[in-house]
């Protein structure tokens, strides 16, 4: 797979993930650039990875963590915030429910349901054991089930 194909295929997934995690579109674009630049420099590693999508998302995730280390909280930047686009009431309800989960759980839920990642891909992306991802996913989904049934996050 050459670089252009990689970009065309997975730019949307990387962008979507970064917008989900970060509010500032300019920051998202900067991290997108850093992510794909790093991918270009390490393109030979692509042959060894199981999932190009998980590989790219792991680079984006690490770049984002680096960025947040360099630019700690006082910046007007919020994790897991709503994207700048319009939101339906249902969307806001989901956002509210997700806020009840911790950061890793939110990422796992996003990866599973929005990007259709497997536990293995999520483990690769987050750099944690597959068993840990699985148990965190089960815990988070049970809580989401509860909120879905109750129709409230309180």
């Amino acid at each position: 797979m050459d670089f252009e194909v990689l970009y065309q295929e997975y730019a949307d997934a990387v962008y979507g993930y970064l917008v989900f995690k970060l509010k500032d579109r300019q920051v998202v674009e900067d991290i997108m650039q850093e992510t794909f630049l790093a991918a270009h420099q390490g393109i030979e590693r692509l042959q060894k990875v199981n999932s190009p999508k998980a590989w790219l998302l792991s680079i984006a995730h690490n770049k984002m963590v680096d960025f947040l280390r360099r630019h700690p909280p006082e910046l007007p930047l919020q994790l897991e915030s709503q994207a700048a686009s319009s939101h339906t009431p249902s969307n806001l309800y989901v956002q509210e429910s997700l806020q009840q989960l911790d950061e890793v759980e939110r990422t796992i839920v996003y990866g599973l349901y929005v990007e259709g990642l497997t536990y293995r891909e999520l483990a690769e992306m987050l750099g944690m054991p597959e068993g840990t991802v699985k148990s965190k996913a089960h815990y988070a989904r049970k809580r989401l089930y509860h909120w879905l049934k109750e129709g409230t996050t309180s």
């Binding site: 730019a11 949307d12 979507g16 994207a83 969307n91 989901v94 956002q95 996003y110 349901y113 049934k149």
Partner: peptide
């Protein structure tokens, strides 16, 4: 429940 979750969470996707 899984179907409902999948449908709800799909709205979080922001296209480029």
């Amino acid at each position: 429940l899984e179907l409902a979750l999948k449908n709800e969470l799909a709205s979080l996707k922001t296209p480029l």
